[in-house]
Nucleic acid binder design. Structure first.
Length: 507
RNA sequence: CGGGGUGUAGCGCAGCCCGGUUAGCGCACUGGUUUUGGGAACCAGGAGUCGGAGGUUCAAAUCCUCUCACCCCGACCA
């Protein structure tokens, strides 16, 4: 391969998408596998992305009246036993704590001792333990609505894990709310779904489809599960957030009752909703390219890398003087209300090494300042959403303005690009043969990137859904909320159907 | 839990089939010199109980037995 064709990440997306994904994470230094199977170490650059996700979502939650609180990581087993579907859904992936101390045995090895009278499970989600508190907190309709969120870690003992997308332990936020009426709870469920979709679009630059899950895909114990689904660059769907209308199921299980306006006791209506560190996986797979991570400016831990270039001490002084001046100016500026964060990279490395370092990390803008630029009163600026060789010569006086408008433009451009990609790979299919052809790779041994989102009719029968899953590994990602009602025939059985569902291969 | 694969320097690997000097290579690291606008070059240097235990042998990274760990594919899933 000649030098001009070389990409920073190998293999490329078309060659081996899942390996590419891992290499992007490695090259950007986001995270690594730990000594604990299935658990990752989130490194500073990756964690800074999570912090930005957290700060912005947290603000949106608070703007809508939610308060943060914190509940125990351990859930007594009997709490968990209260909701049958919930058990069914999570029992197979629970870490269980049975002992409280370690003792040294005859062989000098440590072994667990002090068996607990009742085992604890490590929370795979907190409905049951939060419900126990809510039962005490809620007595009257005057206590409602109760709008609580917690930022926490979660353990789900999955069989196979992938960095960010599915890890044994992960970080998330879980909102739990209690309402007086069914309608109020449903409004809350959809309001939070809107917030997720808005956040995905405006901050992560991910176009997300709001929809409802089918019976087989919904949260264990929920009445309805809503989700936002996005398309990754391998045309597979990734669920990016969920919001559940829990009806009175968990209120009954946890005995959350209140005296209503008529003075009668009744069960409350609850919701729960969450997004996790999986969003970082979505971010990577939506925008990154064969040169590494691409970050939307509004979520990037830093926005501009300033790279001084010089050959000797005299040049160094001149160049650094200008670099520092620009750096200070930019650091005091904002774009779309976000303070601009810069990285002045004066490490003893060649300019291209420093350039590639920041390209792989996904920093939105790079400014090169060299001795040749001083007489021309200009610098060279590169955008991460363009080819690494596309230079923009910008007059020094214009740099601040250029950076501000370009960061805004990039945020929009990255979103539009992702949206176009999804639209190009979304089709309406009404013919069963065509449906099968669409989701069947040419090379079954090593499937190439194929398929996409198929909008097809579904009669509502879980059996049709199951057959399609068995035969094609394609699932109904959601029934989109914003689609028009339309009469048609089920893609599998031909029975009448009133709406299209989104079918896709999924993570 | 089934099927496949890998454990040799911080990382990536060769050597193993066919046992034999002092276990190599690339990257990274350390020191030095020259470099610097698109992934630098040269010189010197440090770094390893060859995953672990047992066995066969004059001799084991290499052969045999057991064992541990990790990765990929499937069943489970945000």
């Amino acid at each position: 391969m000649n030098k001009s064709e070389r990409t920073a990440i190998e293999p490329r997306r078309e060659e081996n998408y899942s390996e590419w994904y891992l290499q992007v994470i490695k090259a950007a230094d986001l995270a690594e596998n730990s000594e604990v199977r299935g658990c990752m170490v989130i490194k500073p650059w990756g964690f800074a992305i999570w912090e930005n996700i957290r700060i912005n979502l947290d603000r949106m939650f608070k703007e809508t009246g939610h308060q943060n609180a914190y509940f125990p990581i351990f859930i007594p087993l009997h709490f968990f036993e209260k909701e049958a579907e919930h058990i069914e859904g999570f029992a197979k992936e629970c870490a269980v704590v049975t002992h409280s101390r370690l003792e040294t045995n005859e062989q000098g090895k440590l072994e667990p001792s002090g068996e607990l009278t009742e085992p604890y499970i490590v929370r795979p989600t907190s409905e049951t333990i939060i419900g126990a508190s809510f039962a005490r907190w809620v007595n009257s309709y005057r206590d409602l609505p109760l709008l609580i969120n917690q930022w926490a870690n979660i353990v789900r003992w999955e069989m196979r894990t992938r960095l960010f997308l599915r890890t044994t332990e992960f970080l998330w936020q879980e909102g739990h709310t209690v309402h007086e009426t069914e309608e109020d709870a449903m409004i809350e469920t959809l309001r939070m779904l809107d917030i997720y979709a808005k956040f995905a679009q405006e901050y992560l630059a991910i176009p997300a489809i709001k929809g409802e899950k089918t019976e087989s895909e919904k949260f264990p114990g929920a009445v309805n599960t809503y989700c936002i689904e996005a398309m990754m660059q391998d045309k597979k769907a990734l669920q990016c957030g969920t919001s559940h209308f829990l009806g009175q199921n968990f209120a009954r299980a946890s005995n959350i009752r209140f005296q209503n306006r008529e003075g009668e006791f009744q069960y409350a209506w609850t919701t729960s909703w969450g997004v996790s560190t999986r969003l970082i996986g979505a971010l990577i797979m939506t925008h990154s390219d064969d040169n590494g991570l691409v970050l939307p400016p509004k979520i990037a831990p830093a926005h501009i890398a300033i790279i001084p270039i010089y050959r000797n001490e005299q040049e160094r002084e001149m160049v650094l003087q200008l670099a520092n001046k620009l750096n200070n100016e930019l650091r005091q500026a904002e774009f779309e209300g976000i303070p601009i964060i810069t990285e002045l990279d004066d490490r003893y490395l060649t300019s291209s090494e420093r350039n590639w370092y920041w390209i792989k990390k996904g920093i939105p803008l790079r400014i090169e300042i060299g001795p040749r630029d001083i007489p021309t009163h200009s610098v060279i600026i590169f955008r991460r959403d363009e080819n690494p060789k596309d230079k923009h010569r910008v007059m020094i006086d214009e740099v601040l303005k250029y950076c501000k408008t370009t960061l805004e433009e990039m945020q929009n451009h990255i979103f539009q690009k992702a949206k176009e990609f999804r639209e190009q790979n979304t089709v309406k299919i009404d013919n069963k043969e065509e449906f099968y052809r669409y989701f069947t790779p040419k090379n079954a041994e090593e499937p190439e990137i194929h398929g996409g989102f198929a909008h097809s009719h579904w009669c509502g029968n879980p059996l049709c859904e199951e057959k399609i899953k068995e035969e094609l590994k394609v699932t109904i990602r959601c029934i989109p909320l914003e689609a028009e009602k339309e009469e048609g025939k089920c893609i599998y059985c031909g029975q009448p159907s009133s709406q299209r569902a989104i079918f896709a291969k999924a993570y």
